[in-house]
Design a protein around this nucleic acid. Structure first.
Lengths: 177, 177
DNA sequence: GTCTATATTGAGATAGAC
DNA sequence: GTCTATCTCAATATAGAC
């Protein structure tokens, strides 16, 4: 079977008549956004990479910006789901441990879209909305760390903000590799 | 003296008739590039920020891309000068110490243009040329570290590439703050 | 050195046939 | 679901007066 392109998970389609679904388009878009940056990416680049005409892409998405929005939602949904699941996991230290482990898992599975999220500059409503969601997430994690510190379940000789920076600085630095 | 704008170092000019020199234009451009990213920055933004017409900017530079080029040259010139000065500073450990101290100094003085340098994606000849110069610099630092390790003047229980990553990861992380 | 036009073009998006 | 062709507009850059 030489004539097949890898589409989104579990899907395969004939080359030359790609027949992409949204996931397949999105996967490629996220990759190219990460390589060249969102602004420097043109629809022509995406079309070339997909071996599709530019026009065909618009059958799947309304705009270039929507591709960004979908990618950012993917990352944020995954992070927020971990946070959600951590809620009913006992004391603060247990919830924090679950959350950090989960966040690493998200990073492994969704590194490209998480990287996009971390590089936002707030140049549009879509970017600013995603940044807001990220800030809420960051805040809840900070609160959880503070709570665990009050518990005495993690060391308190580090200022709260510093502990958060260290933890997420570590995680975020993974995206540079 | 209410009616003055801060221009490049040591220069002041009347508001309304800005009379910028290249340095003043460049300082503002680098700031805006860092805020919104190079691609998302428009000449209209720069003009608004400078309180100048778009056309006037082209009296000082040939293109938007030249502004980027000048900024990157500024960062690279500063880094390379430190490397140059370190050459005749004795043994590898001394040269390395001088270089690291100097690199921190460059970061303090030229943080905005260094930040631009660290964020390049190689989307144009200008970007790729700057990335090449940076790679040469990185390589020379790596060699110096390797030499200091052979000397026995710094610990060798860390793999060479890792030591470099740690050192420059630390420095580069300063740009995130 | 700055201004107000205006020219140009690159890239996002649409229309309609297949 | 994809294609070709075209529309539209924003953004870079230029021209020429002050």
């Amino acid at each position: 079977m030489p004539n097949w392109l890898q589409m989104s998970t579990g899907t395969q389609l004939r080359r030359g008549r790609p027949g992409y679904d949204l996931q397949g388009i999105l996967d490629v878009a996220v990759t190219v956004f990460n390589t060249h940056g969102y602004d420097a990416t043109t629809m022509d680049m995406l079309a070339a990479r997909l071996k599709l005409s530019k026009g065909a892409i618009y059958h799947h998405v309304a705009s270039k910006e929507q591709l960004l929005e979908l990618a950012l939602d993917r990352a944020l949904d995954a992070l927020e789901e971990i946070l959600e699941q951590s809620q009913d996991r006992g004391d603060a230290a247990s919830r924090l441990a679950f959350l950090l482990e989960g966040a690493v898992g998200v990073l492994v599975r969704e590194l490209p879209s998480v990287t996009l999220l971390l590089r936002l500059r707030g140049n549009s409503d879509v970017e600013r909305t995603a940044m807001d969601r990220r800030r809420v997430f960051d805040k809840e994690v900070a609160d959880l760390i503070a709570e665990a510190q009050r518990d005495g379940s993690i060391r308190t000789d580090i200022a709260p903000g510093v502990a958060e920076r260290l933890l997420f600085g570590m995680l975020n630095s993974l995206t540079e590799w």
